[in-house]
Design a protein around this nucleic acid. Structure first.
Length: 299
DNA sequence: CACTTGACCTGTCCGC
DNA sequence: TGCGGACAGGTCAAGT
């Protein structure tokens, strides 16, 4: 759900809304959502000022002037919504919002600022987390240490895509795209969408891909991530940005959650299969399985 | 060692 | 209408 474009959208919103603000209060109703001790919170969170809001993979990094950072992972149903107490969630909140009041019953953590505005961490399924960590040592955390390169960084070439994916030659391409240690930030939606764009069957073993496949996949992946970012991400069920608004990408989706509907390229019905433990959407005509044997039935 | 599956949770949807 | 069960899908631990 929150994948790279969604988390990046939240990052951009928060950077605009909370940079420079001072944290004056914090309340958590769930130790799993925010496991830091009271001591850590008092010393390194309360009274500190937001310096920078950043993102790495699907995680948010809020850098504080106390030398600590607030690390946040939204997993599947996490939301991070800012409320200035006057505009967004009072009477006449925006119609493209999924949220009508704050806090709601999924609210796990509330961070209050000295100007009385608040940041709400909601998470229906409680998979997400928020924790404090020394800023200089974030790279030592196993989650960040093993992350692959950022696909939207300017030097992410098709050759780098090829070289990274080739670290898992025997796995189906979709499973490797979802591996955050290979490339950071891709989740189920953009894996399916980018493979459709590149006309590659999700079950194709990486070792069967040729340079021409990697070039198409690289182009497709970047186009789709950028389009989604332009559209404020994808709202499937629960995703909202930092102001509670839904994303619009899913109306551009070619295959994701479109099983039974015609492929925009050839008209054949999109199918849904199960692969790497995930629902997987594809066009059975445009994305034919690739035979690993020379002279096979396909290509 | 490489890869796959299950657990973590709760809300929603579908069939009976 | 109520109820059980499948499903949603990011990450890590456990299993094959």
């Amino acid at each position: 759900m929150p994948e790279l474009p969604e988390v990046e959208t939240i990052k951009l919103g928060l950077a605009r809304l909370i940079t420079g603000k001072t944290i004056s209060k914090v309340r958590s109703n769930n130790p799993k959502s925010f496991p830091n001790t009271d001591v850590d919170v008092k010393r390194f969170l309360l009274g500190s000022k937001i310096r920078v809001v950043d993102r790495r993979g699907k995680a948010l990094i809020i850098d504080l002037d106390s030398g600590y950072s607030l690390l946040i992972h939204l997993k599947m149903t996490g939301q991070l919504v800012y409320d200035d107490n006057h505009v967004h969630f009072g009477a006449g909140h925006p119609t493209d919002s999924l949220i009508s009041k704050l806090p709601d019953k999924s609210t796990r953590v509330v961070i209050g600022f000295s100007d009385k505005s608040k940041l709400y961490f909601n998470d229906q399924r409680k998979f997400g987390w928020m924790r404090l960590h020394p800023s200089a040592a974030i790279g030592d955390l196993s989650f960040f240490k093993r992350l692959g390169p950022e696909p939207l960084s300017t030097d992410f070439s098709w050759q780098e895509l090829r070289d990274r994916l080739s670290l898992r030659p025997r796995s189906p391409i979709k499973a490797v795209l979802l591996d955050q240690g290979i490339i950071a930030g891709i989740g189920n939606i953009y894996a399916d969408e980018s493979l459709w764009g590149a006309k590659i069957h999700p079950a194709t073993p990486v070792s069967a891909l040729k340079d021409s496949d990697y070039k198409r996949l690289h182009k497709s992946l970047l186009e789709i991530l950028k389009l989604s970012l332009d559209q404020g991400g994808s709202t499937d069920r629960t995703y909202v940005d930092a102001e509670g608004k839904k994303g619009n990408y899913l109306q551009f989706a070619r295959v994701f959650r479109r099983q039974g509907k015609p492929c925009p390229r050839c008209g054949r019905a999109i199918i849904k299969i199960r692969l790497a433990g995930r629902g997987t959407h594809l066009c059975p005509n445009c994305q034919k399985p690739k035979s690993t044997k020379p002279g096979g039935a396909y290509n």
